[in-house]
Design a protein around this nucleic acid. Structure first.
Lengths: 246, 246
DNA sequence: CTATAAGTGTGCTCAAAGTTACAGAGTTTG
DNA sequence: CAAACTCTGTAACTTTGAGCACACTTATAG
């Protein structure tokens, strides 16, 4: 599965209105973008990556920064025993922030990033990045904000791993997804969910089944349906211990 | 134990040579500092905090950034069941990077920071921070580097928690400490070590005892002595499963 | 020099998570 | 439709980590 990160298309970007279109739906950056920031984005190249492209891994050096325009990139850590754990996702309007480590520190980085869908992104060179960081207040704030937000998320990950039982972590994950999805079914297999949370397929199956018995959710092949928001909330708050062996 | 974060002393700083003295031993920042950066530091106030001062916690808002000059600050997360887990330490020449979250995002942050020793630090106001970030390449790079380094450390924490057995995590921690200490004994109680790694005193006692039986270390009240670097390395690489129940 | 506190060792029990193994259900493909 | 594959359910078992209880040791304070 080690598809190399070769861009499918690679074209200079058209004038500003095109750029606006690309970023139209992602206000996070737009609201902070100033002239310098736009200038940088104008110079950026739009690359397209196929789904499942490995965008960086253990030893790959990454000399560029990318702003995702379409699709999502999953950043994760894998273990030698075949387990893995999602650290976060980079979504449209967001920066592949871990590239920064490479960019700023020059250090390689023992994690992987992989396109989940087909991904389009604006690729910014190292020098352009530093240049704009110096000139554009908006871009600088945007980058800082991204970094500190990721930091905050990672701290939450840590505390979940250190202190929370797996069933709670799964319940919280479900809650967050259903929230995002406005209650619509989540398309994911148990094994994938295991990879999200750094655990095994069997544990996920067992715990989800338990939730189904508690009537929070309804399971079907490849997807999870919300049954009762309220019950799920209770479960995710730790009320009612697990019932697996009762 | 909720000593409020009240500075003990609070004086305007003397001219540049004094500043140089304060930071003399911490080249990380010095080598990047330029005129703007120095100007900011000149304006900073030197505060002193007693050991054990809680520097920020769950709901405290923090409107300043601090550069630690002397002493160390431990940043950790605690659980409702009385366990806790060290996220990282801020040492001389380093920034209290989590303040940045507050500073940049304005969000409060569910972690604690506490002075381990008496701490002196240069306190920089929010506006001065942003101002210098815009003007000083050196400072900006320094901040970015700090952030990305913390990010990298947190990722390692996550993968340790998710994938490694406790004995390995303890062995690695010991290794790192002995490295720092040039092989000299580490002064720490089992309970404190538990708080470092998010586990309990008993587990630490048991596992350390096991290591002692393996002749890596020698235990005594309140400190851990290195016995055989090589054996410890083997243990920390996962060779030789635990012997506790054999 | 005692009393008290802090730190350590350890056995027992239990719960959580992971592992192995396999059966069966649902999909896809030729 | 039959074969091959993917996904799910689950039982039995092992390992890891936590919690409790208590004995014992070392340090500190009065």
């Amino acid at each position: 599965m080690s598809t190399l990160a070769t861009p499918v298309a690679n074209l200079h970007i058209a004038p500003s209105d095109k750029l606006h279109d690309l970023l139209a739906d992602y206000p996070d950056l737009l609201e902070q973008a100033d002239a310098h920031c736009w200038a940088m984005l104008e110079m950026a190249k739009l690359h397209t990556f196929d789904a499942n492209t490995v965008m960086f891994s253990e030893n790959m050096e990454c000399k560029h920064l990318m702003l995702v325009v379409e699709g999502t990139v999953r950043v994760f850590k894998d273990s030698d025993e075949g387990r893995e754990m999602t650290l976060y996702r980079v979504e449209p309007g967001e920066l592949c922030i871990h590239n920064l480590n490479n960019l700023v520190n020059g250090m390689p980085y023992p994690i992987m990033a992989q396109a989940e869908t087909s991904v389009r992104g604006l690729v910014i060179s190292r020098t352009e990045f530093h240049n704009t960081m110096s000139k554009s207040d908006g871009f600088r704030n945007y980058v800082l904000r991204s970094l500190t937000e990721r930091l905050a998320n990672l701290v939450n990950l840590v505390s979940g791993l250190a202190f929370d039982r797996l069933d709670l972590r799964i319940a919280c994950w479900l809650q967050a997804q259903f929230e995002r999805n406005c209650g619509r079914a989540i398309a994911i297999t148990h094994s994938e969910l295991g990879h999200e949370l750094g655990t095994t397929r069997e544990m996920v199956s067992r715990i989800l089944k338990d939730f189904e018995h508690k009537r929070c959710i309804k399971l079907s092949r490849g997807s999870i349906h919300l049954n009762c928001k309220h019950t799920l909330k209770l479960v995710s708050q730790g009320k009612g211990k697990r019932t697996t062996r009762a």
